[in-house]
Design a protein around this nucleic acid. Sequence first.
DNA 1: TGGTGTGAAGTGGTTCACAGCA
DNA 2: TGCTGTGAACCACTTCACACCA
Lengths: 179, 179
Amino acid sequence: METVSSNSLAQVANVKPAQLRKDLAYFGQLGTRGLGYPVELLLETIRDVLGRATLQPVILVGVGNLGRALLHYDGFKKEGFEVLAAFDTDEKTLKQKGLSVPLLHDDEMTPFIKKYNVRMAILCVPAQYGQEVANVLVDAGVQGILNFSPTILQVPEQIVVTRVDLAMELESLSYFIDQ
Amino acid sequence: METVSSNSLAQVANVKPAQLRKDLAYFGQLGTRGLGYPVELLLETIRDVLGRATLQPVILVGVGNLGRALLHYDGFKKEGFEVLAAFDTDEKTLKQKGLSVPLLHDDEMTPFIKKYNVRMAILCVPAQYGQEVANVLVDAGVQGILNFSPTILQVPEQIVVTRVDLAMELESLSYFIDQ
DNA sequence: TGGTGTGAAGTGGTTCACAGCA
DNA sequence: TGCTGTGAACCACTTCACACCA
């Protein structure tokens, strides 16, 4: 199998073919009229476009249940992200063993971020600390935050925040299915 | 404090005031011109609109790292969702203790869903089983799936799927911050 | 013939701006 | 005066539909 059509790709991705073509067209002329997209070229190009992403060091802040789960989650590694260290303030939490990354006190966060030039952080602290910790992260030089705390973070414009609020996802789901 | 203005609400929610007003207007005439929205009425109305959501039973399928973390996550409870049971196929997994909900074999899923009239499921199985398990869920009567598996599920039109792909969130983040 | 690339039309959601009411 | 509710303008994204090329 040397080529794929926008049609077949669209089908598995659950989008319309025209959508997919328009999106791919942003990366330049990839496809061949009448044939489709050469699979190899397509893979290369996508890898390339997302490519510069793949070596970024990441830290995780807040090693509660969710934080711990994310540390064990190997999906990040697979996509090429490396969680360099985890941070927490709780003394009991800091004593736990068996994590695959160093577990440090929040106090060491700023120097760590600067030393390793960390650009992205995964934030899993309780809601009430979300903003406070985010401020530290941003001041230290973090540019993107994946926010699992149920808080709306107020950050400078150039900082990107992606929020994942699990309870809200469920709520939204239940809103749509109820009739 | 008896009333709030769309302005102040918009500020904390990080949206434009007009947006907020338009959204609230869908619930009827809530605000008073020149004054703002009566806080109590607003709370009541929102609770009401989302209200029917709040008593839904939920099951969780796939008790790997992520699934286990979600079982410990108390954000669901706080929003009024009750995880009735968790399901897995792995014998070792099924033997573990210390969970706050019954842990059952996948084979018992369909009767369980029917018995308790479960409408929503949290799906945390490995990618390769996602579709298969989703089919079982849908056939049993589940109408909404919160999908943590990195799979695009093909489901009947009336079924709602919300996908949370953690690695992809990070990837998107890193795409936007890199310049 | 089959399937991309892409202007043009359509769509849905956002923002403006202001009339109208406390 | 202050602030909502809302038509109208705007905008970004989606879809259509077709020229064009292997």
